[in-house]
């Protein structure tokens, strides 16, 4: 199976009543890649997914292409997309095998071939012992695996997943996420995955589309988005962020509350870095501050530091030395530092 490219051209969506869910967007999904839509509630992730699925039609002027086919006016049942929903949406009038076979039956696949395919899909999802089970007798994780098997059975061109793990508890979510990851890698299917969980997005996405208010805020690899966020919204939405207001520029350095940062570009007004890219040093640090508190978090210790001017920093320190409130410490920047439009 090789994936199909998806292209959205000037796709906007205005709902009845004038609610604009999506401003015109252009989007190119590469064949076989896993693209994650990430963003806060109501930013238009589901709407975009449903446009691609064919469950909503874009406002006039918007086009949707699968490969070279313009599918804008093709109804969902002819688009050949597999869908997985947060609520599983399994057919409770059919058993597990019946659910997986549904799409094959609709397409008129002969019985013997269908049985083979269903068995294959159930095995792929570790469900071979559940074939005759009623849907009601399955756990949430098992249900979502059935839904995945059902969506993939008919070998769709594109797989669309709308927060498939949101209804599961943390441990199960992790497990199933690994399963989905393995599946998407082995099948090389073009997949779009909607979530508002940034860890999930980072782990699964070849690329991530961060959305804000019906617009695309940034598209990029997880590394891009994390290390070079395009704007304050993206930076703030993904991970924790330390913000420094630049007070002055001097000889390739920027003066900020608590000290100096190495920065050449004199137009920057706000500089940012991640908590894990600050290191506590014994002497000659670029920044100084006073410890406000310290929280042990397992792999690292998060230290809250006051650097004056009402600014506080988060520092993720690898050592587990005990620091008291009020201790003076010095810090260096060890990782990427980036400027944001204020």
């Amino acid at each position: 199976m090789t994936g199909t490219a998806i292209r959205l051209r000037q796709c906007a969506k205005t709902f009845q009543g004038g609610q604009t869910a999506l401003s015109p967007i252009d989007l190119d999904v590469r064949p076989g890649e896993t693209l994650v839509f990430l963003g806060p509630s109501g930013c238009g992730k589901t709407t975009t997914l449903r446009l691609i699925a064919g469950l909503e039609t874009p406002d006039a002027g918007g086009r949707i292409l699968f490969g070279d086919d313009d599918v804008t006016d093709v109804p969902i049942e002819k688009r050949g997309v597999g869908m997985v929903f947060q609520s599983y949406a399994l057919f409770s009038n059919l058993d597990v095998a019946g659910n997986v076979a549904y799409g094959l039956k609709v397409r008129g696949m002969p019985k013997a071939e269908r049985a083979t395919r269903v068995a294959e899909m159930l095995e792929l999802m570790h469900l071979q012992d559940f074939a005759d089970r009623s849907i009601h007798a399955l756990s949430g994780g098992q249900r979502q695996r059935v839904a995945l098997a059902r969506a993939l059975a008919a070998r769709p061109r594109i797989l669309l997943l709308d927060e498939p793990l949101a209804a599961l508890d943390a441990q199960l979510r992790e497990q199933l996420r690994v399963d989905i990851d393995r599946l998407l890698r082995t099948l090389h299917i073009t997949a779009i995955y909607v979530t508002h969980d940034q860890a999930e997005a980072m782990a699964l996405g070849d690329r991530i589309v961060v959305m804000e208010n019906g617009r695309i805020a940034q598209i990029g690899t997880p590394q891009d988005i994390y290390q070079r966020p395009a704007n304050a919204f993206v930076a703030g939405f993904i991970g924790n962020l330390n913000r420094f207001d630049v007070l002055a520029h001097e000889q390739g350095r920027a003066r900020v509350a608590g000290g100096w940062l190495p920065w050449n570009d004199t137009s920057a007004t706000v500089l940012c870095c991640r908590p894990e890219h600050l290191e506590i040093v014994h002497a000659n640090g670029a920044l100084q501050g006073q410890v406000l508190g310290q929280f042990f978090q397992g792999a690292h210790t998060r230290v809250l530091v006051d650097i004056g001017n009402g600014r506080q920093l988060l520092v993720d320190s690898r050592d587990d030395r005990l620091r008291q409130r009020g201790d003076l410490i010095e810090m260096n920047v060890t990782g990427p530092l980036f400027a944001l439009a204020a």
Partner: peptide, 20 residues
């Protein structure tokens, strides 16, 4: 009660037309 809209959407994505 039975979440028909999403069930139907699932069926549609699997290729089932309105009558089916």
């Amino acid at each position: 009660r039975s979440h028909l809209p999403v069930l139907e959407e699932a069926a549609a994505s699997l290729g089932a037309g309105p009558a089916r």
